[in-house]
Design a protein around this nucleic acid. Structure first.
Length: 565
RNA sequence: AGCGGGGUGGGGUAGCCAGGAUUAACCCGCUGGGCUCAUAACCCAGAAAUCAGUAGUUCAAAUCUACUCCCCGCUACCA
């Protein structure tokens, strides 16, 4: 097979705080797919990074009395460390403050500007004389003109959900100093999305990979009519706008954040000493670019990002696939950073190993509808699937080889029809899992990994090698040879999902190298007879605590961590 | 308000886009049984849903159409 180029990315987590499990669904999805394609022998680049500009961070920094950069430096460093602990295999996890990104964004927007897609318009904005700044978005609050909610934000009212303009607010006040702002005229630069309606419609309707939810949503979005989108803001924290007479303006976060997919690729290859290689991913029609996001992010990836790429008049390929999930909810409501609702990725690892969470998130990935996180479900998945089915099958097989065959994979004499049938089914399952991952159906894929071990358990129960061995050692050898093969297959196909356990298993199997450096097809290559394996030891441990106990534990962890902070 | 998604055995999900292949699949739970190599794990059998409702299209509908009732999300800065 020809070596394909695959770029895998996930939405950039906003670093006003550490991400929660909902955000991680996207990161995990990207990681599973990236790891899979690497096993398939493709040239994979996996990128993402911290989205660190925007008013929520600036507001938070002003409140803490530090600079936005100080805040994001601290949070970014923490997130990078955590993502490593979760086993995510990024080639480049960068940030929007990195110089390559800033330069790329400015150059790219200049091209779009020169191509005539950006125009200037004057508007009115609240301006705080005391703070000496304009008050866009969340810098200003006031009474909602629709529902009279007292603390509506400049961009949207929390209570009735309506979108607002900062000037719509009744009795507005500056969120920093609480004083009443004046209204001042200001100029802003707008990206004229409507000029891309045709091309975007063609792109979306002809893209075969897009799931129907993503496609329908995007098409209806275009049908409603694309409006010009402001690309500048009157705030200091951000990338300076490169347009003539746009001093003191910065680029609107969403516009630049999506360009990060490109700049992160550029930065990666620059660091590798191959500064031109990024083009093989972005200017190559045969390259696959995959994006994993939450459903709220669809228009940015199927409309704004492609429009930005088209606007440069360069031969960028548009996203090959955008896989959007529904939401993971917590007790029926959305995870929330500000209200600390949910489980955050630092706390999660204090409670259980990364593989437990990774498996859980993949196996319950909200692919068709919102799903609810519950400790009960988490315990069920970990105990029943990972531990009892997968873990136990592996353990009973390896333990048997340890004790009955002196830790050597037995030599099969003549495989029976049953044995051949099991091996054939195994082959089919591996194929199925591959197809599912390629279709981004990770929930089924995770499930099918477990189902392989379920098949293994059934096979062992039917064959009863522990009885057979007393009369017919050859027959038992056949059975255990087949079971050992299943175990090896599991090590490989589970590797994208539970990389730590898979590597541990690879080590116990005493196979050369690292499981993550193998080829996917290695999954079905037989273990050589007489191959000596290591001492079996359980890969997972059952969660004995009740849901209530885990809620308590989480609270304790949260308390402890807030003190460290 | 508009747009999008969803309502499938006791719980959790898949199937729906491209209608039929078979008793509507899978996991948990439940009932009964088996096994004892294995982390009190494993395996088998069974009970249990006419797929929100109504009307239609069709030889055939969970799947397509229309309407109704619930739930949720989005509406351009929450994954």
């Amino acid at each position: 097979m020809e070596l394909g180029k695959v770029l895998v990315a996930c939405g950039w987590p906003y670093v006003n705080y550490v991400p929660h499990l909902g955000t991680l669904v996207q990161v995990l999805s990207a990681d599973v797919v990236a790891r899979y394609y690497r096993l398939k022998g493709e040239d994979v680049v996996m990128v993402s990074g911290s989205d660190e500009h925007g008013t929520p961070i600036e507001v938070e920094a002003v409140r803490l009395g530090i600079s936005p950069k100080q805040l994001t430096d601290k949070n970014h460093a923490k997130v990078v460390e955590l993502l490593k602990k979760w086993g995510f295999s990024f080639n480049n996890y960068t940030r929007t403050e990195n110089p390559v990104h800033k330069e790329f964004v400015q150059n790219h927007l200049t091209k779009i500007y020169n191509n005539g897609y950006i125009f200037v318009q004057e508007t009115e904005m609240p301006y705080c004389k005391k703070c000496g700044r304009f008050l866009p978005d969340r810098f200003v609050e006031g009474k909602c003109p629709y529902c009279s909610h007292e603390h509506a934000r400049g961009d949207q009212c929390n209570a009735c959900g309506r979108l607002l303009e900062p000037t719509f607010l009744i009795e507005p006040y500056c969120v920093i100093c609480k004083s009443k702002p004046a209204i001042k005229r200001t100029k802003h630069w707008y990206f004229d999305l409507s000029k891309f309606s045709e091309k975007l419609r063609d792109y979306i309707s002809s893209n075969k990979q897009l799931a129907s939810n993503t496609r329908n949503f995007s098409l209806s979005f275009i049908k409603e009519g694309l409006k010009p989108r402001a690309v500048t803001r009157d705030v200091e924290w951000g990338i300076p706008a490169p347009f003539p007479e746009a001093e003191n303006k910065t680029i609107y976060v969403w516009i630049e954040a999506v360009l990060g997919y490109v700049s992160a690729t550029i930065e990666y290859f620059k660091n590798c000493g191959e500064p031109e290689k990024w083009k093989e991913y972005w200017f190559n029609k045969d390259a696959k670019t995959l994006f994993f996001i939450g459903k709220d992010n669809i228009p940015f990836h199927t409309i704004i990002f492609p429009a930005l790429l088209l606007g440069s008049h360069e031969s960028y390929s548009l996203p090959w696939n955008v896989s959007a999930t529904e939401f993971l909810q917590f007790k029926g409501e959305a995870f929330s950073k500000s209200r600390r609702i949910g489980v955050f990725i630092d706390e999660a690892l204090e409670l259980f190993p990364a593989d437990y969470w990774r498996y859980f998130l993949a196996a319950t990935r909200p692919e068709t509808k919102d799903t609810n996180f519950s400790w009960k479900l988490f315990i069920e998945k970990v105990n029943a699937d990972l531990n009892d089915t997968l873990g136990n099958f592996i353990h009973r097989t390896l333990k048997f080889i340890n004790s009955q065959f002196d830790s050597e994979v037995p030599e099969p004499s003549c495989l029976s029809e049953d044995d051949e049938r099991v091996l054939k089914t195994l082959e089919e399952r591996v194929e199925t899992i591959a197809n599912e991952i390629e279709d981004c159906r990770l929930q089924s894929a995770a499930n099918d990994v477990i189902s392989i071990s379920r098949m293994g358990n059934q096979y062992l129960n039917e064959k009863e090698p522990w009885n057979v061995i007393k009369k017919d050692r050859d027959e038992a050898a056949n059975t255990i040879y087949v079971a050992a093969q299943i175990v090896k297959t599991l090590a490989l196909v589970s590797a994208p999902f539970i990389p730590f356990a898979a590597e541990e298993l690879w080590r116990i199997l005493n196979l050369p190298g690292n499981v993550h450096e193998q080829e996917w097809d290695e999954a079905l290559k037989p273990l050589p007879p007489s191959h000596k394996i290591g001492e079996a030891s359980p890969l997972f441990r059952k969660i004995e605590a009740s849901s209530e106990k885990l809620v308590e534990k989480l609270e304790k962890v949260r308390e402890k961590m807030s003190k460290v902070d």
